[in-house]
Design a binder for these strands. Structure first.
Length: 210
DNA sequence: ACATTAAGTGATT
DNA sequence: AATCACTTAATGT
């Protein structure tokens, strides 16, 4: 276990902190599609992603989902950090986008580490900033972009987190992520295919040139 | 062979 | 851009 942590975080954290992580952290492997946490569930830990990617969603009263952003390897979910003090509940749903390996750090030690290790503090602040930027980008695309541009960005994100030109998904899934209808997604994808950007198949999309 | 699920399409709002 | 209604195609049992 030490090796995987070293590989992803060794250059970031001092040896003492790495040891603490090894000591209190729990390594967990989750499969694609597995739920990490759901709306309203109490937050007990902060995840450090070792490998894979997590998608973070929001949901409205009518069960309409909206994708906020992806968390990739070497990253953490900074929104959880704000919830550390006090018994707060999750405002989001997190689902494994791909098979993912991560370390769970109990929230009890997080605050302690913030004061104790400068590297940890910087990591948390940086991650918070990254997450905030991604959120702003998402807001921008929703507010100012049309559906075709939102779809394009979504496909680019998907291809990126999967490190693969084959995006395993259905039109319906995409529609859910973007909170639109399947018909709209199908039609826009068709346009992209006609423009030679992608290739459509049942249950997956092959990226040609985005 | 039949049922189920994914995707394509015209028409309407 | 969303919804409806219907078709076609792929896949599972």
């Amino acid at each position: 276990m030490g090796d995987i942590i070293d590989l992803n975080y060794g250059y970031l954290f001092e040896e003492e902190l790495l040891n603490e992580i090894r000591h209190v952290g729990r390594v967990k492997k989750i499969k694609e599609g597995d739920k990490l946490i759901d709306l309203g569930e109490p937050i007990r830990w902060v995840p450090l992603i070792l490998d894979g990617a997590i998608k973070v969603l929001r949901e409205d009263d009518d069960n309409n989902e909206l994708l906020l952003y992806f968390i990739e390897q070497g990253d953490t979910c900074a929104i959880t950090i704000t919830c550390c003090s006090g018994q707060t509940k999750s405002e989001i749903r997190a689902i494994a986008e791909t098979d993912t390996e991560l370390i769970l750090i109990p929230i009890e030690v997080i605050e302690n580490w913030m004061g104790k290790y400068k590297s940890w503090r910087n990591f948390m602040l940086q991650s918070y900033k990254d997450r905030m930027m991604e959120l702003l980008e998402t807001i921008d695309t929703i507010a100012f972009f049309k559906m075709d541009q939102r779809l394009l960005r979504h496909l680019q994100d998907k291809a990126k987190v999967n490190h693969n030109d084959i995006i395993k998904t259905t039109h319906q899934d995409i529609a859910n992520d973007l909170n639109t209808s399947r018909v709209v997604v199908s039609r826009l994808l068709k346009v992209l295919e006609n423009n030679g950007k992608i290739e459509l198949q049942r249950n997956f999309i092959k990226v040609i040139d985005l």
